[in-house]
Amino acid sequence: MSAEFLDFLTHKYAYVAVGEFKPGQFAEAQRLYEKAVSTYKQGFKGAFLLQKPGTDEGIAVIMWEKLEDMEANQNEIYQKLLAEMTPLFVKPPKTDFYEICSEIDGFSEE
């Protein structure tokens, strides 16, 4: 089998965090999230931060080539930013990992 075909069969992973921030803290949490994500290198495949309209509830989705890549990117800067973000939550977010089974790109300009 070709390397390209094997790459196609390799599934990426998503780290998903669902949480609620204290009133008025979403913008600060977004700033810290974007700063943390900007430090990611090896295996990082993209990220989304979603906010339920009119609330301080959100979902963070970070895509990785392999689960080990996320661990490799948890450097000192990441730890500092996480420590700054933790008190902004109402309660700790629910987090989990998911295997990406389908990936459909609808953003092409044709």
Rank of each mutant, 00 (worst) to 15 (best):
G58H: 06
L32M: 06
F5E: 14
S102T: 14
A17W: 13
F97Y: 10
L81G: 02
Y98E: 03
L49G: 08
L50F: 13
P93A: 06
P93I: 08
Y33K: 12
Y98F: 10
K52S: 04
G58D: 15
V16H: 09
K41G: 14
T39L: 05
A83S: 10
T39R: 07
K41T: 12
P53R: 03
P93W: 12
A72R: 07
Y13K: 04
V37R: 03
L67G: 08
I62F: 07
K94D: 15
G46M: 05
C101V: 11
F8C: 08
F26K: 00
K12E: 11
E84N: 06
G24I: 00
S108G: 06
P53S: 04
L49V: 12
C101D: 14
K12Y: 11
E57H: 04
Y78I: 08
G19L: 03
E103P: 00
K41D: 13
P23Y: 02
F107G: 14
L67V: 06
E103M: 07
I62M: 13
D96G: 14
G106R: 05
N73T: 03
E76P: 01
Y15H: 14
K66W: 02
M63V: 11
G19M: 07
F5T: 11
G46T: 04
F26N: 00
A17G: 15
G19S: 13
A47D: 07
F89D: 13
E4D: 15
V18N: 13
E76F: 01
A36C: 13
L9W: 01
Q74I: 08
K41R: 15
G106M: 11
L82T: 12
A27I: 07
R31G: 04
P92H: 08
D56T: 03
M1S: 04
L6M: 09
T55F: 01
Q25T: 01
K35T: 13
P87D: 02
Q74G: 08
T55G: 04
T86F: 15
K91C: 09
D56K: 01
W64S: 00
Y98L: 15
E68M: 15
Y40C: 03
L9R: 08
A17Y: 13
E110D: 11
E76I: 03
K52Q: 05
L9E: 01
A17D: 14
